[in-house]
């Protein structure tokens, strides 16, 4: 089967307005990111020439400055140095929230469609962080753990999840396979005390505030005590 990806690029010029430029003035080092639609950043880079621009290409992306929703882990961002703030170009809050999850630095989101901007900080995700901290603690103290494995080709991490058995020999792990994660299905397995998510990490972060059960991302579970100290 032949496969083609169509980026659906934003087809208008992207230029920062005076208001966001004023906001950015207080930050010297700025890491610039955008979703794939808004990667035409030449004007923006020119407008930021008085700042130190931090340039990176996160782990799974195809282009420099591109950000994916799953880039919620600091090491995935591949930053050559720590910025004072992030500038994200694009609409919506899903991608800039990934940066908030990956770093404690402020994120300025600029929407080129209506020339508006928002300043986001960790206060905007405090509910997520609070729930996640509780989930990590519950995971550490639980014996019966359910691991969710998706069949989605780009998210499937069955072999990687086996590392948990080496790291936590005193826990009992049960493997559950599905396509999309359906939280209501967990009610059928009431013996499970905590869940591990090996699919999209946003399931156990943004979505989990609506869950009654604890759920932790696989890589955080592998370093649960260290991650807890940072939260």
């Amino acid at each position: 089967m032949d496969t083609i990806f169509i980026d659906a690029k934003y087809n208008k010029e992207i230029r920062l307005d005076e208001s966001v430029l004023k906001t950015l003035k207080k930050y010297k080092k700025i890491a610039l990111f955008a979703s794939v639609q808004f990667l035409n950043l030449e004007n923006v880079k020119e407008q930021l020439k008085d700042h130190k621009l931090i340039v990176s290409k996160p782990d799974r992306t195809n282009a420099t400055h591109q950000l994916l929703g799953c880039d919620v882990f600091h090491e995935n961002l591949k930053l050559p140095e720590e910025p004072d703030a992030f500038l994200y170009i694009g609409d919506g809050l899903f991608h800039p929230r990934a940066l908030l999850l990956a770093s404690d630095k402020p994120v300025i989101q600029f929407d080129p469609m209506d020339n508006s901007h928002k300043i986001l900080t960790r206060k905007d995700i405090k509910e997520i962080l609070k729930k996640y901290k509780g989930s990590l603690m519950k995971f550490l103290s639980s014996r019966y753990i359910g691991i969710f494995i998706t069949v989605k080709p780009g998210q499937q991490q069955f072999l990687f999840s086996k590392k948990l058995e080496e790291k936590y020999p005193n826990k009992d792990f049960y493997y559950f396979v599905g396509n999309n994660f359906d939280a209501s299905q967990t009610e059928n397995y009431s013996f499970i005390q905590a869940w591990i998510n090996t699919a999209c990490p946003r399931i156990s972060l943004d979505d989990s505030v609506n869950y009654s059960f604890p759920m932790v991302n696989i890589n955080d579970a592998l370093e649960a005590e260290e991650v807890l100290k940072k939260l």
């Binding site: 032949d2 496969t3 990806f5 169509i6 195809n62 991490q157 890589n219």
Partner: peptide, 25 residues
């Protein structure tokens, strides 16, 4: 998944570009 059962010749996804698969988020 399962598109082969429908004898699809071309799959086109809009809004994303190909990403680099890496185990361990």
């Amino acid at each position: 998944l399962g598109l082969s059962q429908l004898n699809i010749d071309l799959f086109a996804q809009f809004g994303h570009n190909r990403f680099i698969r890496k185990e361990g988020w």
